[in-house]
Write a protein that binds this DNA or RNA. Structure first.
Lengths: 206, 206
DNA sequence: GCTTGATTACACAGGTCTGTGTAGCTAGTC
DNA sequence: GACTAGCTACACAGACCTGTGTAATCAAGC
């Protein structure tokens, strides 16, 4: 029992360090020896916990597959706040783009489990948007959630290449326009935030 | 003279094959021996043309840095046609995302020349949008061109992860909404393409 | 025919990588 | 104290990588 807890702690420690190294320097760029050294265990023991580097890779990605929760704020604000969160991420030292897209780009073998995990992640993120859009009664939440995700991924790629966090603000503004065009009143109100009365929806797309 | 022409032909042949291999299987995944074998020359001769793999990488990326031209079509149609072109690209066998973003993701050294070329490429693409938007007299062509580029990059990432060309259509529709919100009449006309009269711009976003 | 430059095949240096094999040590348990 | 499970250090196999050195060959121009 106590032994198992200690083992789990070591596993977590391994995954912490693997995450930092794989994300920060690239999966192919990091060798197993480096990981073992950083963790402070022998390579033999590392292989005892994870029998191959591939398992380390999938564990690394699977651990980043965490569902995002919802707050008490109005849905439109939660959606737009996602882009503010992105902007903060882009400004953090060590930002290197999307871990999943990078993994797919690095591991070009189509059979690799990383592809499936990356797809699951993107779909999870899309469904997060979709759930919020569902509360907003937009006409086509499937398409709009995908479009918002495209803006997120585009902003990530842009920030990676440009090294410039403020692309997130352009993405946020584009998201606001899309929401507004879909008839979300909060997005319109956020635009000219002087007039507070949102006189119900009058014209809706389509 | 004739010798120089033959040399250039070999150089082109090398770059053709390098492009196919680097883009299709990844820069790090392809060794110099593989390149020489595929070209049909000895490794020594290959190193005679390009003295290091890094030079091959930069030549590979620089050759993909070709400015896109303009057609006779109306600007808004050219912009939207870009997303149709994307959809066709996504469906082609061998599509593996954006060569520049992949290169930056693979070559994580920040000093590498690939970063600068990738940035130049993205900026070149943005300026292509910007030029067309300039003809359309939109209020903020700098922001809007960046937003269109974000949609492009988001669609590329989405198509890479999903293996699904139709994300380009969602991106195209989002671009159309953004153009329409910026007061581009052709985008509005394209929406309800029944009524042909675009009764000049009446309300413009500000 | 001879020179000269490019190309070839091949070996190799020196480094990286993943994964395994082994012998000894250490710490908890009977 | 003896046993056992896990750990460590270390070597190593076998493969890959980039880049170079070398001697032989081939082909064009004088």
């Amino acid at each position: 029992m106590e032994r198992s807890a200690e083992k789990r702690a070591i596993e977590q420690r391994i995954l912490d360090i693997v995450d930092r190294l794989f994300y920060g320097r690239g999966i192919r760029a990091i060798g197993v020896d480096t990981i073992a050294d950083e963790v402070g265990i022998s390579k033999r023991t590392l292989y005892n916990y994870y029998p191959s580097k591939d398992e380390l890779i999938t564990a690394y990605l699977a651990r980043r597959l965490q569902p995002r929760g919802y707050s008490d704020e109005p849905p439109a604000q939660q959606i737009l706040a996602e882009f503010d969160r992105l902007e903060r991420q882009f400004g953090m030292t060590g930002f290197r783009g999307c871990a999943f897209v990078n993994a797919v780009a690095e591991l070009k073998e189509p059979k690799h489990a990383a592809n499936k995990i990356a797809l699951a992640f993107k779909e999870q993120r899309r469904m997060w948007f979709r759930e919020l859009l569902g509360r907003l009664d937009v006409p086509d939440p499937d398409t709009l959630s995908l479009q918002l995700l495209l803006l997120v991924d585009g902003a990530i790629a842009g920030a990676l290449v440009r090294g410039e966090p403020k692309v997130a603000r352009a993405a946020r503004e584009a998201a606001r326009v899309l929401l507004s065009a879909a008839g979300v009143p909060a997005a319109q109100a956020a635009k000219q935030r002087a007039s507070k009365q949102a006189h119900s929806r009058s014209r809706r797309a389509h």
